[in-house]
């Protein structure tokens, strides 16, 4: 393979911008180890991309940084470095599950639980209202029964 032709094929640009296919990436990475001109072409294009990105940069609103910090504090992120923490294979998959240290005291649950909690709250309120209503009715009925028993006793004692 003529490496100059390969470099001029647009493969360096495709690789850096992420539009190269898996096969093209594998071939590129293999050839990169063998051809210093390809390494140089890659380094040059990377610098061009970074310079362009610097020129096109748009500062995000300061609230984004605050939201990001809040998010980071809520998320379980491995606090150890790559050597001491998770171990990755060459294809990027992890060999074992990393242990997380979480600084936040809050827990995170799925949004759907909000609806479940709301429904439970409403049902509990309705149940409480029914309980109070029937309790009042019960005491009223018991009071009436007592009054009727008292009247009956009075009638019976009057007959005697």
């Amino acid at each position: 393979m003529n490496i100059d032709t390969y470099i001029r094929s647009g493969i360096v640009e495709a690789y850096v911008l992420g539009v190269a296919s898996a096969d093209e990436r594998a071939e590129f990475e293999k050839l990169l180890l063998q051809h210093p001109p390809l390494q140089q072409a890659l380094a040059e294009f990377e610098i061009q991309v970074e310079t362009f990105a610097t020129n096109q940069s748009v500062p995000p609103p300061s609230k984004t940084r605050r939201e990001y910090n809040d998010f980071i504090n809520r998320m379980p992120i491995p606090r150890t470095n790559g050597n001491g923490g998770s171990s990755h294979t060459s294809n990027g998959s992890s060999n074992f599950i990393p242990a997380y240290e979480v600084s936040s005291t809050h827990i995170r649950v799925h949004k759907n639980w909000r609806i479940v909690v709301l429904i439970l709250f409403i049902v509990a309120k309705i149940a409480l209202a029914f309980l109070i209503y029937f309790a009042i009715k019960f005491y009223e009925a018991r009071s009436e029964v007592k009054q009727m028993q008292h009247k009956e006793e009075q009638i019976q004692s009057g007959r005697r």
């Binding site: 992420g18 991309v49 970074e50 990105a53 998010f71 470095n81 790559g82």
Partner: peptide, 28 residues
């Protein structure tokens, strides 16, 4: 943007080992 930094936070060792520069790796 927040999601990008949050997602990449746990994968920075990949950035150190990547063929691409740190910025270009982040961009991809």
């Amino acid at each position: 943007l927040t999601q990008i930094f949050t997602n990449l936070a746990g994968r920075l060792d990949e950035a150190c080992d990547a063929t691409l520069s740190v910025y270009c790796w982040m961009q991809v």
